[in-house]
């Protein structure tokens, strides 16, 4: 059964599409009942931000692929210094990305 060509597509539909869109649809239904600047919306904003940053932060601490072999201090230093420069120079996103990536590449080449 699982050798049929459509089996993979069925897995993607059930374990991929339904498994993700279920939550998006619930989000629409919940969000439709939230008022602008209600306490509930403040809490939902906090939870959404913490969730996204937890996922993002894990990518830096536990990367997959070639970066998995790079030292943690290099990744943290590249991001940390880039973010600090970003904060000190008027919070322009391109500054953080440019400084951090330049430091990371320099570090990877030296090490």
């Amino acid at each position: 059964m699982s050798d049929a060509w459509w089996w993979t597509y069925l897995v993607i539909i059930i374990a991929g599409w339904l498994a993700t869109d279920l939550w998006r649809w619930l989000g629409v239904i919940v969000g439709n009942r939230l008022d602008d600047d209600s306490e509930a919306l403040q809490w939902v904003r906090a939870v959404a931000t913490a969730l996204v940053m937890a996922v993002t932060s894990k990518l830096v601490f536990f990367p997959t692929g070639t970066l998995a072999e790079s030292p943690l201090w290099l990744r943290l230093a590249a991001l940390g210094i880039g973010f600090l420069v970003f904060l000190l120079t008027g919070q322009r996103v391109i500054v953080c990305v440019g400084v951090s990536i330049a430091l990371l590449i320099a570090g990877l080449m030296v090490l």
Binding site: R24, G27, V28, V30, G31, D35, D36, A48
Partner: peptide, 12 residues
Amino acid sequence: IRMMPMVASIMP
């Protein structure tokens, strides 16, 4: 699961 608060927070 994070999709739910993400979507809900931009709906208003």
